[in-house]
Amino acid sequence: MRSATIGSVLAGLLALLLAVPLLVVAGVSVNAKKTLSFPPQGFSLSWYAEIFTDPGWRGALVNSLTLAGLSSALSVLIAFPLAWFLWRWKAPWARAFEILGMTPFILPPVITALGFLSFWSAIGAYGQQWTAVVSHAVFFVTLPLVTLSLGFAAVDRSYVEAASTMGADDRAVLRTVILPLVRPYMISGFAFAFVLSLNEYIVAYMSVGFTMETLPIKIFNALRYGYTPVMASVTVLFVAITAVIFGLIARFGDLPRLLGAWSKSD
């Protein structure tokens, strides 16, 4: 019993340690004046308002949300047919594409970023905004690929067989059986990719760093060129968005399973 208490105290301490940098930032974000001080001097939510009123910050927010939305949608569009193909057909050679889809996520991000930088400048598209969408979609394709593979693995093949004995061809099976069953996994994959795209810096920077500011790029530039408490309020906003999205995934999906708590056969 005593060790359990010590354990709980340590876990609590760890949670506090993980939260402390964010709490300090949250404190800084409500400073009344444009100072970087903690505990905050005075209380003001004006730095939150400025995210939406200041054209620079608002633009960056819109850029980030647009980029995250489009790129994670494209990620799912790439991952879904691949995961479905691997599940539907016996094609060991196609595993090569699965591995390709996993690689960018495991390698240090600088490498993928540099690859894109060479590629976009070689084809003369460097700096065009759509390149960031494609870059992020490929960079984060791992996430929907993993969630969808888990989703397909969870579909009992006898459902598909039953549907086919009842007259459904491949297309009808996909529409009436598979899609409804893997939808939660598809949404989780989209959400994971969305959150990570929202936070991603280096790939976006090396693709469109000089022509488009996303929020992480803007925060980084602000760090270099002068402090403003909006950095803090934007950070808090980001943490909140991230936590809400993961909270939603946990609410509507099985988070432990998505993170590998059970093997495929269960």
Partner: peptide, 20 residues
Amino acid sequence: MPAHKRDFGMVFQSLALFPH
């Protein structure tokens, strides 16, 4: 002939009722 064109009815061991 593929299964979906045979017009047979089948009951599976797992029953395979669609959960959704």
